[in-house]
Design a binder for these strands. Structure first.
Length: 111
DNA sequence: GCAGTGACGTCTT
DNA sequence: GAAGACGCCACTG
């Protein structure tokens, strides 16, 4: 039973569902998927996200709205640039008005 | 099989 | 309010 990839795939699906100009946190995804293992596992899945072509990992940041994973991109600063292209403001590796741009997977049904 | 590590989060000092 | 420590558990060596 190698269904472990299932949980990875779930994370990818959620990340791909993130609307343009919006961002979410690892904890939100973990909560939505019911991964009580913690946001850490979500981050781990994101690390493998580079195996998938259409994973806007730049829209996934930590609870503080900080681009913790920017160093994992092809080039440092790439993550910030992508966020700015989405219409977001990033400064000091941190998203401005993060709470405003924050998007929660649970809002999908509420939306 | 054990130890180290990590795209986080929360508690405690 | 900021910084450090711990916990969570999957993956690698």
């Amino acid at each position: 039973m190698k269904n472990k990839e299932n949980y990875f795939d779930l994370v990818y699906q959620v990340v791909k569902l993130i609307p343009r100009g919006r961002v979410t946190s690892y904890g939100a995804i973990a909560n939505y998927l019911g991964i009580k293992s913690g946001a850490r596992m979500v981050g781990y899945a994101m690390n493998a996200s580079h195996t998938q072509p259409d994973i806007p990992a730049h829209r996934v940041v930590n609870r503080n709205g900080v681009l913790t994973g920017k160093h994992h991109f092809s080039e440092p600063g790439q993550m910030q640039r992508l966020l700015e292209l989405d219409g977001l403001k990033v400064e000091n590796d941190k998203i401005i008005n993060f709470e405003i741009h924050f998007w929660d997977p649970n809002q999908l049904e509420l939306d």
